[in-house]
Simulated scan of single mutants.
Amino acid sequence: MDLAQARAALKSASRVAVLTGAGVSAESGIPTFRDAQTGHWARFRPEDLASPGAYSRDPDMVWEWYAGRYRDVLAARPNGAHLLLARLEREKGAGFFLATQNVDGLHGRAGSGAGGGRMVELHGTLLSARDEVTGEVFPLPAPDVLVTPPVSPSGNRMRPNVVWFGEYLPQDALDAATRAFQAAEAALIVGTSGAVYPAAGLAGETLFAGGTVIEVNPDDTELSRHMTYCVRDVASRGLAALMEDGAMLGA
Protein backbone atom coordinates (compact mmCIF):
# COMPACT_ATOMS: atom_id res chain seq x y z
CA MET A 1 0.00 0.00 0.00
CA ASP A 2 1.20 3.50 -0.81
CA LEU A 3 0.19 5.54 2.23
CA ALA A 4 1.02 8.80 0.49
CA GLN A 5 -1.40 7.98 -2.33
CA ALA A 6 -4.12 6.99 0.12
CA ARG A 7 -3.60 10.24 2.03
CA ALA A 8 -3.74 12.25 -1.17
CA ALA A 9 -6.97 10.55 -2.28
CA LEU A 10 -8.65 11.30 1.04
CA LYS A 11 -7.36 14.87 1.21
CA SER A 12 -8.45 15.79 -2.32
CA ALA A 13 -11.91 14.24 -2.09
CA SER A 14 -14.75 16.68 -1.55
CA ARG A 15 -17.24 13.83 -1.05
CA VAL A 16 -16.24 11.25 1.58
CA ALA A 17 -18.32 8.36 2.90
CA VAL A 18 -17.32 6.31 5.95
CA LEU A 19 -18.50 2.94 7.27
CA THR A 20 -17.48 1.96 10.80
CA GLY A 21 -17.78 -1.25 12.78
CA ALA A 22 -16.91 -2.70 16.16
CA GLY A 23 -13.18 -2.12 15.71
CA VAL A 24 -13.70 1.63 16.08
CA SER A 25 -15.24 1.26 19.53
CA ALA A 26 -12.89 -1.50 20.73
CA GLU A 27 -10.36 1.14 21.81
CA SER A 28 -13.03 2.64 24.08
CA GLY A 29 -13.44 -0.72 25.81
CA ILE A 30 -16.75 -1.55 24.14
CA PRO A 31 -16.94 -5.32 23.61
CA THR A 32 -18.51 -6.83 20.52
CA PHE A 33 -22.00 -8.25 20.91
CA ARG A 34 -20.71 -11.78 21.52
CA ASP A 35 -17.82 -10.65 23.73
CA ALA A 36 -20.38 -8.94 25.96
CA GLN A 37 -21.95 -12.33 26.70
CA THR A 38 -19.96 -13.03 29.83
CA GLY A 39 -20.93 -14.26 33.28
CA HIS A 40 -24.66 -14.88 33.60
CA TRP A 41 -25.20 -14.10 29.92
CA ALA A 42 -22.65 -16.60 28.58
CA ARG A 43 -25.20 -19.41 28.67
CA PHE A 44 -27.50 -17.65 26.18
CA ARG A 45 -27.35 -17.81 22.40
CA PRO A 46 -27.35 -14.40 20.66
CA GLU A 47 -30.83 -15.19 19.35
CA ASP A 48 -32.01 -15.62 22.95
CA LEU A 49 -31.20 -11.98 23.69
CA ALA A 50 -31.58 -10.09 20.42
CA SER A 51 -34.53 -11.30 18.39
CA PRO A 52 -38.24 -10.51 18.16
CA GLY A 53 -39.02 -14.02 19.37
CA ALA A 54 -36.86 -13.65 22.48
CA TYR A 55 -38.48 -10.32 23.30
CA SER A 56 -41.95 -11.74 22.83
CA ARG A 57 -41.15 -14.64 25.18
CA ASP A 58 -39.36 -12.69 27.91
CA PRO A 59 -39.20 -8.89 27.53
CA ASP A 60 -37.94 -8.47 31.11
CA MET A 61 -34.89 -10.64 30.49
CA VAL A 62 -34.11 -8.95 27.18
CA TRP A 63 -34.36 -5.54 28.77
CA GLU A 64 -32.10 -6.62 31.64
CA TRP A 65 -29.45 -7.50 29.04
CA TYR A 66 -29.84 -4.23 27.15
CA ALA A 67 -29.93 -2.12 30.31
CA GLY A 68 -26.54 -3.54 31.26
CA ARG A 69 -25.09 -2.75 27.85
CA TYR A 70 -26.60 0.75 28.05
CA ARG A 71 -24.80 1.36 31.36
CA ASP A 72 -21.54 0.13 29.86
CA VAL A 73 -21.61 2.35 26.78
CA LEU A 74 -22.44 5.46 28.82
CA ALA A 75 -19.42 4.73 31.03
CA ALA A 76 -17.17 4.58 27.94
CA ARG A 77 -15.62 7.58 26.22
CA PRO A 78 -15.03 8.35 22.53
CA ASN A 79 -11.48 7.50 21.47
CA GLY A 80 -9.12 8.98 18.93
CA ALA A 81 -10.85 7.30 15.99
CA HIS A 82 -14.21 8.83 16.89
CA LEU A 83 -12.62 12.26 17.33
CA LEU A 84 -10.73 12.10 14.05
CA LEU A 85 -13.86 11.16 12.12
CA ALA A 86 -15.72 14.06 13.74
CA ARG A 87 -12.86 16.33 12.64
CA LEU A 88 -12.98 14.91 9.12
CA GLU A 89 -16.68 15.77 8.99
CA ARG A 90 -15.92 19.35 9.97
CA GLU A 91 -13.25 19.56 7.27
CA LYS A 92 -15.38 18.08 4.47
CA GLY A 93 -18.64 19.74 5.47
CA ALA A 94 -21.71 18.81 3.45
CA GLY A 95 -19.67 16.32 1.41
CA PHE A 96 -19.17 14.02 4.40
CA PHE A 97 -21.33 11.05 5.40
CA LEU A 98 -20.86 8.48 8.16
CA ALA A 99 -22.70 5.17 8.41
CA THR A 100 -22.00 3.12 11.53
CA GLN A 101 -22.90 -0.42 12.46
CA ASN A 102 -22.22 0.39 16.11
CA VAL A 103 -25.05 0.95 18.58
CA ASP A 104 -23.03 2.63 21.35
CA GLY A 105 -23.63 6.28 20.42
CA LEU A 106 -19.94 7.17 20.68
CA HIS A 107 -19.78 8.80 17.24
CA GLY A 108 -22.52 11.22 18.21
CA ARG A 109 -20.87 11.97 21.54
CA ALA A 110 -17.62 12.74 19.69
CA GLY A 111 -19.45 15.30 17.55
CA SER A 112 -20.29 13.33 14.40
CA GLY A 113 -23.60 14.12 12.79
CA ALA A 114 -23.71 17.58 14.33
CA GLY A 115 -24.32 19.09 10.91
CA GLY A 116 -27.56 17.14 10.50
CA GLY A 117 -28.16 14.39 7.96
CA ARG A 118 -24.51 13.36 7.82
CA MET A 119 -24.68 10.25 10.02
CA VAL A 120 -26.88 7.16 10.22
CA GLU A 121 -26.80 4.37 12.80
CA LEU A 122 -27.60 1.39 10.62
CA HIS A 123 -28.23 -0.99 13.52
CA GLY A 124 -29.94 1.52 15.81
CA THR A 125 -28.69 2.73 19.17
CA LEU A 126 -28.67 1.59 22.79
CA LEU A 127 -29.35 5.16 23.90
CA SER A 128 -33.02 5.18 22.95
CA ALA A 129 -36.12 2.99 22.88
CA ARG A 130 -39.06 2.67 20.51
CA ASP A 131 -42.78 2.78 21.36
CA GLU A 132 -44.17 -0.64 20.42
CA VAL A 133 -47.48 0.87 19.28
CA THR A 134 -46.62 4.18 17.60
CA GLY A 135 -43.02 3.50 16.56
CA GLU A 136 -41.89 6.80 18.08
CA VAL A 137 -38.35 6.89 19.44
CA PHE A 138 -37.44 8.40 22.80
CA PRO A 139 -34.09 8.77 24.62
CA LEU A 140 -33.64 6.54 27.63
CA PRO A 141 -33.31 8.14 31.07
CA ALA A 142 -30.07 7.86 33.02
CA PRO A 143 -29.22 4.26 34.00
CA ASP A 144 -29.74 4.90 37.72
CA VAL A 145 -33.39 5.87 37.14
CA LEU A 146 -34.15 3.54 34.22
CA VAL A 147 -37.06 1.20 34.93
CA THR A 148 -37.40 -1.72 32.53
CA PRO A 149 -39.28 -2.32 30.40
CA PRO A 150 -39.54 1.45 29.88
CA VAL A 151 -42.83 3.12 28.99
CA SER A 152 -43.33 5.85 26.40
CA PRO A 153 -45.06 9.20 27.12
CA SER A 154 -48.17 7.60 25.58
CA GLY A 155 -48.11 4.84 28.19
CA ASN A 156 -47.01 2.08 25.82
CA ARG A 157 -44.21 -0.37 26.49
CA MET A 158 -41.00 0.38 24.56
CA ARG A 159 -38.49 -2.00 23.02
CA PRO A 160 -34.75 -1.40 22.51
CA ASN A 161 -34.17 0.78 19.47
CA VAL A 162 -31.80 -1.66 17.77
CA VAL A 163 -32.02 -4.00 14.82
CA TRP A 164 -32.44 -7.60 15.97
CA PHE A 165 -31.69 -10.90 14.26
CA GLY A 166 -34.34 -11.47 11.62
CA GLU A 167 -35.12 -7.76 11.21
CA TYR A 168 -34.28 -5.46 8.30
CA LEU A 169 -32.12 -2.38 8.56
CA PRO A 170 -34.12 0.87 8.57
CA GLN A 171 -34.72 1.53 4.89
CA ASP A 172 -34.29 5.30 5.04
CA ALA A 173 -30.90 4.96 6.75
CA LEU A 174 -29.72 2.32 4.28
CA ASP A 175 -30.92 4.37 1.31
CA ALA A 176 -29.10 7.47 2.58
CA ALA A 177 -25.90 5.49 3.09
CA THR A 178 -26.15 3.89 -0.36
CA ARG A 179 -26.56 7.28 -2.04
CA ALA A 180 -23.59 8.68 -0.12
CA PHE A 181 -21.29 5.80 -1.06
CA GLN A 182 -22.39 5.95 -4.69
CA ALA A 183 -21.49 9.65 -4.80
CA ALA A 184 -18.26 9.40 -2.76
CA GLU A 185 -14.93 10.19 -4.36
CA ALA A 186 -13.28 8.43 -1.43
CA ALA A 187 -14.70 5.98 1.09
CA LEU A 188 -13.25 4.71 4.36
CA ILE A 189 -14.11 1.26 5.72
CA VAL A 190 -12.96 1.31 9.33
CA GLY A 191 -12.93 -1.47 11.91
CA THR A 192 -15.47 -3.77 10.30
CA SER A 193 -15.10 -7.38 9.19
CA GLY A 194 -17.06 -6.81 5.99
CA ALA A 195 -19.07 -9.94 6.70
CA VAL A 196 -22.45 -8.41 7.56
CA TYR A 197 -24.64 -7.36 4.65
CA PRO A 198 -26.10 -5.13 3.38
CA ALA A 199 -23.67 -2.74 5.13
CA ALA A 200 -20.67 -4.62 3.76
CA GLY A 201 -21.91 -3.91 0.24
CA LEU A 202 -21.52 -0.16 0.61
CA ALA A 203 -17.83 -0.25 -0.33
CA GLY A 204 -18.79 -1.81 -3.64
CA GLU A 205 -21.06 1.14 -4.42
CA THR A 206 -18.07 3.50 -4.34
CA LEU A 207 -15.81 1.14 -6.28
CA PHE A 208 -18.44 0.59 -8.97
CA ALA A 209 -18.80 4.36 -9.39
CA GLY A 210 -15.05 4.73 -9.84
CA GLY A 211 -14.16 6.05 -6.39
CA THR A 212 -11.29 5.16 -4.08
CA VAL A 213 -11.92 2.90 -1.08
CA ILE A 214 -9.50 2.73 1.84
CA GLU A 215 -9.78 0.03 4.50
CA VAL A 216 -8.46 0.63 8.02
CA ASN A 217 -8.20 -2.62 9.96
CA PRO A 218 -5.39 -4.48 11.72
CA ASP A 219 -6.43 -7.73 9.99
CA ASP A 220 -7.37 -8.89 6.52
CA THR A 221 -11.14 -8.98 6.03
CA GLU A 222 -13.56 -10.31 3.47
CA LEU A 223 -13.37 -6.93 1.73
CA SER A 224 -9.60 -6.47 1.70
CA ARG A 225 -8.90 -7.94 -1.73
CA HIS A 226 -11.33 -5.45 -3.31
CA MET A 227 -9.93 -2.33 -1.63
CA THR A 228 -7.93 0.35 -3.38
CA TYR A 229 -5.69 0.74 -0.30
CA CYS A 230 -5.47 -1.07 3.04
CA VAL A 231 -4.05 0.49 6.21
CA ARG A 232 -3.12 -2.31 8.60
CA ASP A 233 -3.56 -0.75 12.04
CA VAL A 234 -6.16 -0.14 14.71
CA ALA A 235 -8.70 2.53 13.92
CA SER A 236 -7.19 5.47 15.82
CA ARG A 237 -3.64 5.03 14.51
CA GLY A 238 -4.75 4.12 11.00
CA LEU A 239 -6.93 7.20 10.70
CA ALA A 240 -4.21 9.37 12.23
CA ALA A 241 -1.77 8.11 9.60
CA LEU A 242 -4.25 8.87 6.81
CA MET A 243 -5.01 12.32 8.17
CA GLU A 244 -1.37 13.01 9.02
CA ASP A 245 -2.23 13.71 12.65
CA GLY A 246 1.06 13.55 14.50
CA ALA A 247 -0.57 14.18 17.86
CA MET A 248 -2.72 11.07 17.53
CA LEU A 249 0.31 9.05 16.43
CA GLY A 250 2.23 10.18 19.50
CA ALA A 251 4.72 12.19 17.49
Rank of each mutant, 00 (worst) to 15 (best):
A42V: 07
V231L: 06
G166E: 10
A9T: 09
A54Y: 08
T100D: 03
S12Q: 15
T20F: 00
D48A: 14
R225S: 15
R87V: 04
E89I: 02
V137W: 11
V196R: 04
N79H: 12
S25V: 09
G210C: 06
G80M: 09
F165Q: 03
E89V: 03
E121M: 05
R157Y: 09
T38P: 09
G194E: 12
D60M: 10
V231P: 04
A86S: 15
F165K: 07
F96G: 05
L3G: 08
A241M: 15
D245A: 11
A251M: 14
S236P: 07
E64C: 00
A114K: 14
Q101G: 11
D175Y: 10
S12N: 15
F97R: 05
Y168L: 15
P150A: 02
L84P: 02
A9N: 12
G108N: 05
V24T: 11
G80L: 04
E91K: 14
A4G: 13
E47W: 02
F33G: 08
T134D: 03
M248T: 14
T32F: 09
V196D: 07
F138T: 00
L83C: 12
P31C: 03
G105L: 11
D72T: 11
V24H: 08
H40K: 14
G211A: 05
V231S: 00
S56F: 14
